[in-house]
Design a protein around this nucleic acid. Structure first.
Lengths: 213, 213
DNA sequence: CGCCGCCTCACATCTTTATGCGATAGCGCC
DNA sequence: GGCGCTATCGCATAAAGATGTGAGGCGGCG
């Protein structure tokens, strides 16, 4: 029986979740809270802390995402599934970066939600399709970003790989080309961007991200 | 009615897919091929090219992933859903980078597969939970215990300098110490942070800033 | 005092990056 | 068809970075 925690501010929804999931033989609903603060406080008195947490995102006080970071330090072994009415890319990525293992729309019917929770316990990462779309777009080759300096598509891929911290060898593997080809592209990129080391490229990314993200 | 393409080498499976999906009122199965080469060839004679493609990954000849890149150049507006028995991270990410909008296990039952295809058409990105787990791990903050920086003050200065994109030589100048001293500190930092290149340090900084800024 | 952590420096060696000079092939364009 | 741009790959050299081994000085602490 999986010890389950629930964080949801709307009483009606919280109780519905708690009641339905708690009634399932697979789950033991050990802690239901209306906010992260309440949840953290409640953790103290528990014999068996939850290993699976279902959390809303739009919460009063500490948001679900901020709370998630904190929660993962206190309960590193717990897996957190986010639930939200919002499916904008911003929130999805923030949740994933904060360590959520899944992200579902709030409209998910209860029996399906139960299925998803079980999938999490089984090592899965359920995501609503519309949420997952943000993710696929993130990985997809940039659909001709016009603003990006005057780098060719290939050169942009190279830059992204550098920003990911990869070595030439790994970049070559990722792009399925030879080491010399990678060198060649990088030389070109350095000329265009007026830099002369991977480090400068990465420092650039650093500054950009502070401005835009 | 959505024009659908299918690429699958195993005849039995291909026919099952073709038959089942073709019989659905939502789809018009316009092209079924056993390989990407065959598929590309077949495209030429079509009045309405598919806008939705279901493709296997383990194909003879050009693999599903290589083929995907090519396909997306010929049919940029088509969305491709990958189907595979393999769910290793390597393949999943390659598929996503090549532009797949979704990735399903081959064991997905036909009616569910149909649902997933409709979700793609509706702008979703269905992923099997075990596939999605790779994705969430990709975004998640470095493994739960990334050695809580027990860096000495001097080591932290070194890290900051690295994050600024400086070379060893410049770091040595900034801190008024010898090159070898810088090396020495960096070696120590690498041990403590479990990394082994400047690039990884910088990628770390990158992730941190996304969370906090 | 002796041990330990921190900072410093040195030398050696191997790998990775940076950079120059080519070369071939495909594609769009006039 | 020639021209420019892109992408690919090769070779070579020099600089920078990664990694091992070792070692002296300094300050705190049991």
């Amino acid at each position: 029986m999986i010890p389950l925690g629930i964080i949801e501010d709307q009483a009606a929804i919280r109780e519905a979740l708690c009641e339905y999931l708690g009634a399932q033989p697979e789950f033991d609903c050990v802690l239901c809270a209306a906010s992260h603060e309440e949840f953290m406080a409640g953790l103290a008195g528990l014999a068996t802390p939850p290993t699976l947490v279902l959390s809303d995102i739009g919460l009063p006080g500490r948001s679900g995402i901020e709370g998630l970071s904190v929660l993962r330090q206190v309960l590193p072994e717990a897996e957190v599934l986010m639930l939200s009415v919002y499916t904008d890319a911003e929130r999805v990525f923030e949740a994933l970066r904060a360590g959520a293992v899944g992200y579902l729309e709030k409209t998910t019917p209860l029996p399906l939600l139960k299925e998803h929770l079980l999938q999490v316990a089984a090592g899965g990462s359920p995501m609503s399709p519309s949420v997952a779309r943000h993710v696929t777009r993130y990985f997809a080759p940039r659909p001709v970003v016009p603003a990006a300096d005057n780098l060719t598509p290939r050169e942009q891929e190279i830059v992204r790989a550098i920003e990911d911290g990869l070595s030439y060898k790994l970049i070559a593997e990722r792009l399925h080309v030879s080491l010399d080809t990678v060198r060649s592209h990088i030389r070109q990129v350095y000329r265009k961007l007026q830099v002369n080391s991977k480090a400068e490229i990465m420092a650039r990314a650093q500054n950009r991200s502070r401005l835009s993200w």
